[in-house]
């Protein structure tokens, strides 16, 4: 799901950086109040787990590969603001060390996966937790993968319309919505299922130790 460099036009990533800058500033507000000596080691461990999970590629039916995000467990354990900041850090490291996702695309990736993924997870969990907590965590994790997948597909699919030559040849990513939406969203239906299982396991572990903030 990490969009690499060269796939997004400046018309896309520059406004995305502006939006992400505002979102990072919002998330960093009150950080000193939120963090304490118990939260930081837990956040460190979960961020390192998300970083590792994002680099473990799993083959998916259809000849492609996918990986878990780990953003749902960050959001459920620490809230949207901390999850967004921590996941942005994960994306920056993955980009710089492994080329998984581009620096120019970092803002789009962070907004899609870090912010919208966290929001999707937390809102879904809060909406469904009264029915069944475990199911709520699983569905929240599934949504935290599917919504970013949808947003990434939309960002990629918009590129031929946003930036093209006079003859219509795309300058950046060449495939439109009709191709990107099924190509990105369908594999993430499966990835979301894996993410759900993983998040439920981490959630139970964390809940037994009273780590949860959600």
């Amino acid at each position: 799901m990490h969009i690499p460099d060269g796939f997004l036009s400046p018309q896309t990533y520059l406004p995305a950086y502006a939006a992400a800058g505002l979102a990072w500033a919002w998330a960093a507000r009150g950080l000193r109040r939120t963090l304490d000596e118990e939260t930081v080691p837990r956040l460190a461990a979960m961020t390192a787990l998300a970083y590792g999970l994002g680099l473990v590629m799993v083959p998916i039916p259809g000849g492609t590969s996918g990986h878990a995000l780990g953003v749902a467990m960050l959001a459920l354990l620490f809230g949207v603001r901390l999850a967004f900041l921590a996941y942005s850090l994960v994306l920056a490291l993955q980009s710089l060390l492994f080329g998984a996702g581009g620096i120019t695309a970092l803002a789009v990736n962070a907004l899609a996966m870090g912010l919208c993924g966290s929001l999707a997870a937390l809102l879904t969990y809060r909406l469904l937790r009264r029915m069944n907590e475990t199911a709520a965590v699983a569905i929240a994790a599934w949504c935290s993968v599917l919504l970013p997948g949808l947003l990434v597909a939309l960002a990629l699919g918009a590129q031929p319309s946003i930036a093209h030559r006079e003859d219509g040849t795309p300058l950046f990513f060449p495939f439109g919505f009709a191709i990107t939406l099924p190509a990105v969203v369908i594999p993430h239906l499966f990835i979301g299922a894996g993410e759900a299982v993983l998040t439920v396991l981490v959630w139970r572990f964390a809940r037994a130790r009273k780590w949860c903030s959600a």
Binding site: L35, E37, A44, T47, A48, Y51, L55
Partner: peptide
Amino acid sequence: DRPAKLMFGAGLLLALFGLIQLFVRRK
């Protein structure tokens, strides 16, 4: 050397959080 890079990244993350830990409020 993917495992080494992975360890390096995880080390960087933990070092950063270790640094933050020095400045957070004590319970």
